[in-house]
Amino acid sequence: MKVIFHKVSERSYFSTAARDDGVTVRVPGYDRTSPVPHDLAHFIAERELGIGRGFWGSVAAGAMFTNMTVVEGRRRPHADERSRLIIKANGEGLGQCEGVAGAVHEAVEKGQSAEIALEHLRRMHGVVSAEPLAVGAADLAEAISSLSAAADRWAETPIGEGMALTWELPTYEPRRRAQKSNGRKGRIRRSA
């Protein structure tokens, strides 16, 4: 999936994501209080830490969050059902990616070490998951370095232009429930 972060002004942006299903969606940005856009921090942190079931992985798989709009292409039949299944199945990953992106973003904004980011993440992680934290200081150091480089590129991006990145992590593919066909219970309708 190709994602472009469009710089509207020094304080505003939006993103477009050209998904593999032929649909391009627009993700609105919000006025920023920091130099690095929140959605860019999510993208880099999720990609670098392999969180394929976070926000951007969900978008790549076909999720449509309420603030998103289709700007190009045609959604497939049952796209709304697929979106709901993806969001539900990725719920824990979506919660975890908020903490991870927040820790990486804050480390870049405040010039913090990976160790400080890890402590921040540990505090946040316990709120969203009972599972052990699968990220260490070395992982965070790489994500922080990547986000710092992306922040430099963003700072150099002129207003009215965009910064393109590629999402290559595998996506979750939900399976549709079996449906009745021709009144026969248990038959699955197949589409070409």
Rank of each mutant, 00 (worst) to 15 (best):
K7W: 04
R19A: 13
D20C: 09
D20L: 08
D21A: 13
V23W: 01
V23L: 04
V23I: 13
T24S: 04
R26S: 10
P28V: 08
G29R: 05
D31C: 02
P35S: 03
P35K: 09
D39W: 07
D39F: 08
A41P: 12
A41G: 14
F43T: 12
R47Q: 09
R47G: 00
L49C: 09
L49F: 10
G50N: 06
G50T: 13
G52Q: 02
G52M: 06
G54M: 04
G54C: 05
V59L: 11
A61W: 11
F65L: 10
T66A: 12
T66M: 11
V71P: 01
E72W: 13
G73L: 09
R76T: 09
A79K: 14
E81T: 15
I86Q: 14
I86N: 13
G91Y: 05
E92Y: 12
L94F: 03
G95Y: 06
A101P: 10
G102A: 12
H105W: 13
H105N: 05
E106G: 04
V108Y: 03
V108W: 05
K110S: 09
S113A: 05
A114T: 08
E115M: 01
R122M: 14
R122D: 01
R123P: 00
R123N: 14
V127K: 07
V127P: 02
S129H: 07
P132T: 06
L133T: 00
V135P: 00
V135Y: 01
D139A: 05
D139I: 15
I144W: 08
S145Y: 04
S146Y: 03
L147Y: 13
L147G: 00
A149P: 00
A149I: 08
R153Y: 00
W154H: 08
A155C: 02
A155E: 00
A155F: 01
E156F: 05
T157H: 04
L165S: 02
W167P: 02
L169G: 15
P170Y: 09
E173Q: 15
R175Q: 07
Q179I: 09
N182Y: 05
N182Q: 10
R184L: 14
K185M: 12
R187F: 02
R189P: 05
A192P: 01
A192N: 03
A192M: 09
